[in-house]
Design a protein around this nucleic acid. Structure first.
Lengths: 196, 196
DNA sequence: GACTCAACCTGAGGGTCCCTCAGGTTAGTG
DNA sequence: CACTAACCTGAGGGACCCTCAGGTTGAGTC
């Protein structure tokens, strides 16, 4: 009947809100150190709460991930709006992409979830991803209109490049990090070819 | 004492070889449909063998993955050697990269394992990855020597690009597949800039 | 302050998967 | 045919997942 994705809402009762916040804090910490497949039972016990309580507030792992990353992605969208008026649309796009890659690789496994959510409605993070898609597409279009980015690049391709860069960054989290270089190469690859 | 990675060897006794092969065949099928984290117990039962037998031949999941993908990666290295004499070194590099991306994304989760193995000795797939690294580096160097690829690109960066492309391909396995386009963009991005 | 009840919490428990290991079986050799 | 190293089995303990029956409590109402 109602197959909309479950988006965790901050509950109404005081004890509910307390636990919700504690779980979220524990989850952020656990995701950071163990990746998106951190043990939910560990998170619950770290939050000082029984496992059933965690499931009450966050019925799926995806809904917990969504709640844990919502702020960061909201900031990303907000930043895109600020950048919309930038005098140099290519520079604006580049800066946004750099920031996006960092957010996408906040913890191991996140970029996979986001890539999944991007085109799969019925996923908790889909709404946020759609908003980001919009932001990225706008910045891209502006840079293309100014003739600064190859005109055949689509927003979907842009996000593939972004996701790839974020994945490389997340892989390299421990050790050699080639991701700034990766994005650099990608960026240099998508600028409009100079006129002959 | 001996912390070399465990590489599965084809066993000596006839029953051992039979089971080894059956497990490998079942594993290939399971990885293909369920990804690298397919259930080992399913694989064992699919092979008509008890779980202990699977662990006897393949003490770790990584060793099973290594055995299941060894052939494909060996082919990739062999292909590189054949391409070494290609008249157009850029075309040779491109073709090899296209093939590499396909092999890296044989099943979901493989490219992550390979990226891990690339710089982590003590991993079953490390030997194969090192060989591939060599192959790729040779083709890259040749294309650079011919002035066809930007000279500042390192082999490590090449493999980051390849892995990123493979990851995007593996993500999109079900549905929209942007991977040929991804690699295309990358390839166009790394060619040497035309002289002014 | 007592009452009410929806919201909330708990943790036992059944399911899946991981990996180990003690004990039984068998292929191949002399 | 006897011997043994190689091989096989599957029970079992541990981690994690997720559900649900039953108990507790915050907050509104009188």
């Amino acid at each position: 009947m109602d197959d909309r994705p479950y988006i965790a809402r901050r509950p109404k009762r005081a004890d509910g809100r307390r636990n919700y916040d504690a779980i979220l804090a524990a989850a952020r910490k656990a995701f950071e150190t163990s990746g998106a497949d951190a043990s939910l039972e560990d998170i619950a016990s770290q939050a000082g709460v029984a496992i059933g309580t965690l499931y009450r507030h966050f019925p799926t792992r995806a809904s917990l991930v969504e709640a844990a990353t919502r702020d960061g992605l909201e900031n990303l969208v907000a930043h895109a709006e600020r950048l919309a008026g930038h005098p140099d649309p290519l520079e604006a796009l580049k800066e946004w992409m750099r920031e996006a890659v960092i957010h996408f690789s906040t913890f191991r496994g996140l970029v996979g979830i986001l890539a999944q959510s991007m085109y799969d409605e019925g996923t908790p993070s889909h709404a946020m991803c759609a908003a980001m898609h919009q932001s990225g597409a706008d910045l891209l279009r502006a840079a293309q209109a100014a003739g600064r980015v190859r005109p055949d690049l689509t927003p979907e391709e842009l996000f593939d490049l972004l996701s790839g860069a974020a994945w490389v960054r997340e892989q390299a989290a421990s050790g050699r990090d080639g991701s700034p270089r990766f994005l650099q190469l990608v960026l240099e690859g998508i600028v409009a070819p100079r006129r002959d």
